[in-house]
Write a protein that binds this DNA or RNA. Structure first.
Ligand SMILES: [Mn+2]
Ligand SMILES: [Mn+2]
Ligand SMILES: [Zn+2]
Ligand SMILES: [Zn+2]
Lengths: 147, 147
DNA sequence: TTGACTTTTAATAACTATTATCGTTTAATA
DNA sequence: TATTAAACGATAATAGTTATTAAAAGTCAA
């Protein structure tokens, strides 16, 4: 890390109102250097290369601190438990980033909202994310070789 | 449950290639009667009212059986562990329903695909779901009362 | 720079959700 | 009805995560 990198990280922490620590900076740097959607365990393994004494709990706490501060995001706001979809109709979801509640919304209600109409339940939208669900090429091949 | 309901459930199980059991039918009926996105624990609590001796593991197993058979869906395919989003650009996700891998896709790649263009990595889409992320009305009020 | 005060850390215990194991029971089917 | 495969209940095991606590490090006014 260069002096300017260290200063940038200091500025980032200042604006988030959190302390600058060596552990925090290394977690941040490794997250920035990783691609995809790493788990806390994967981050921990990389950070441990640089700080062998670090604790997994420290990695968890720093990841949460970053997420609270808006420096990183979670991929999905999951509830920590499996949830069954009981609504068989085609629909989308309003997900609260704070309490993580999930509310159904009709496909056409969503389309109207993208044309300026407000959402049900006075939901205040910040952003939206699309999941395209299907089969990756490896799983297509596995499925083909079975039949 | 009426005789015709029982026959319908039998037909459902037949076409899914799974056995008809009393426990399975009660789990199914309670799921159908529940709204929203219940957790296995919540299903268990309701089923236990009707079959006090049922095991939580049986509820889990039947929910999985239903999901494998396509009778019900999971709300989120990646609820198992926290994942950090390392991609700061606006983007969406290709999620494999089989291996649960998550691949980034640019917002404009997604728009092109909705106009007939094929997706990256030979991904085979089945459906898509939109998550509108934001604040529910309760959390808006909590936030307002803080400031 | 110092000293009071706050935050973070490491170690580890505890907890929650989920899965595996295994002996028993039940359902499918011949 | 007998055979066989599937499902069940009890409970142990595991994975992911959070809580606790004392020590170390960071912050900040003077
Ligand atoms: Mn839903
Ligand atoms: Mn992503
Ligand atoms: Zn909320
Ligand atoms: Zn796959």
């Amino acid at each position: 890390m260069t002096v300017s990198d260290a200063n940038q990280f200091r500025a980032l922490c200042d604006s988030a109102g959190i302390a600058v620590t060596h552990q925090r900076q290394v977690v941040y740097e490794e997250l920035c250097a990783m691609h995809g959607h790493p788990s806390p365990e994967e981050v921990y393994l990389r950070v441990k290369e640089r700080i062998p004494a670090i604790s997994l709990a420290t990695v968890y706490k720093n990841i949460h601190t970053f997420i609270e501060s808006g420096i990183f995001r979670e991929v999905s706001l999951h509830h920590g438990s499996l949830r069954v979809e009981t609504n068989a109709h085609s629909h989308h979801h309003l997900v609260c980033t704070q309490c993580k509640s999930i509310t159904d919304i009709d496909a056409d209600e969503f389309l109207l909202s993208s044309r300026g109409q407000s959402l049900p339940n006075k939901f205040l939208p910040e952003r939206f994310s699309v999941e395209v669900l299907g089969l990756c090429v490896e799983c297509q091949q596995k499925q083909a070789s079975l039949s």
